[in-house]
């Protein structure tokens, strides 16, 4: 019977049932006990504590929050709150502020993608054509520096720069003196989204060139030599050799960016926005934060958790899609 190859034995289907396998497993685990104990366990247990233990809290999306006075315990708030089923999600769909934040998030992300995404590409093509070596280094140092600043700092500089005593106002007033008394750049809903995109480019475009420049550096130099022999000018070489050589990376980064479309950068918006521009600048993350911690009416943790859960689910789907798509294109970086 057991010689018949068409019949799978339970041991073959489930090798961990066999005694030998278990023995080997235990032996291996024992052999690597220090690795488990000193290397895997610390990071793993902390990740489970700080990343996984909050996850069951998502159940709060289906409840109306009531604090569990006096009771201790990690999930006691889940038991003290009242189950309301899908009420929060129903409310969400008729809540204009939610749709406003949802729309703003996607619009701002798409604007950043459409306007901001090409910048590092053009910039890296330009930097690559610079033939003065020392200057190239200086440029890279300066261009990449703002990436390492927090949005608190960048917003602080920007609020001054575009604000009431800022340089932009002073220069504008030189040309149009009537602006002196009506300057409201930072509180102007027509400008705010463009302002976000422009600051994002200012901070991150230089950093974005790093990957492209690394890819360009890997291009086979003989291609350029052959092109010169054939009489190609510099612009033609950029167009027919350099650009195609980074095309794969452009597509992959674009797809990965689409995966992050629900993240319109909390740090940036939160440090720059103000009540007059909520209508165009309030994004999902800032909306959740204000609902949770700055609400003027009753704090509704249940509702804001529901909004957060919806965002997490959409985000998750987008990221999985983006990664699968990027992998199809031959990207094997993360996961």
């Amino acid at each position: 019977m057991f010689g018949d190859s068409r019949v799978l034995s339970p041991l073959k289907m489930y090798p961990f049932l066999s005694a030998e396998w278990r023995k080997l497993f235990i032996k291996l685990v024992w052999q690597y006990k220090w690795i488990y104990l000193f290397m895997v366990a610390p990071a793993l247990s902390l990740v489970i504590l700080f990343r996984y233990l909050p996850m069951p809290g998502i159940m709060l999306s289906f409840e109306t929050f009531k604090p569990s006075f006096g009771k201790s315990g990690l999930y006691s708030f889940l038991f003290s709150s009242d189950w309301v089923g899908l009420k929060h999600f129903q409310r969400m769909f008729v809540e204009p502020d939610f749709w406003r934040a949802f729309g703003n998030t996607i619009i701002i992300s798409i604007m950043k993608l459409a306007i901001g995404f090409p910048f590092p590409i053009v910039l890296s093509l330009m930097i690559n054509e610079v033939r003065v070596k020392g200057y190239k280094r200086v440029m890279q140092t300066v261009y990449t520096f703002p990436h390492f600043l927090s949005w608190v700092v960048v917003a602080g500089i920007a609020l001054n720069f575009f604000g009431d005593s800022g340089v932009v106002k002073k220069v504008s007033v030189l040309f149009r003196p009537e602006l002196a008394n009506s300057w409201n750049f930072l509180y102007n809903a027509h400008i705010f989204r463009g302002f976000l995109v422009a600051l994002d480019i200012w901070k991150e475009a230089g950093w974005g060139t790093i990957l492209y420049l690394a890819a360009i550096a890997g291009v086979d130099q003989s291609l350029y030599e052959a092109a010169i022999m054939d009489g190609c000018g510099r612009l033609k070489r950029v167009w027919y050799i350099t650009l195609p050589s980074i095309a794969g990376m452009i597509i992959i980064l674009f797809i990965l960016n689409i995966g992050g479309i629900m993240n319109a950068n909390f740090d940036q918006v939160f440090n720059l926005y103000n009540a007059p521009v909520f209508s165009v600048g309030d994004v999902i993350d800032t909306y959740i934060y204000r609902l949770s911690f700055q609400s003027t009416t009753v704090m509704d943790f249940g509702f804001s958790t529901a909004v957060g859960s919806l965002k997490t689910i959409i985000n998750f789907a987008l990221l999985i899609f983006a990664n699968a798509a990027a992998r199809k294109m031959g990207y094997d970086g993360i996961m």
């Binding site: 959740i288 958790t305 990221l319």
Partner: peptide
Amino acid sequence: FIMVFTMYFGGGLIPYYLLIKA
């Protein structure tokens, strides 16, 4: 996988806040 999964999925703001509180 346990590590990588946290790049894609999380509990969200309030559950995280309540954990730190607990």
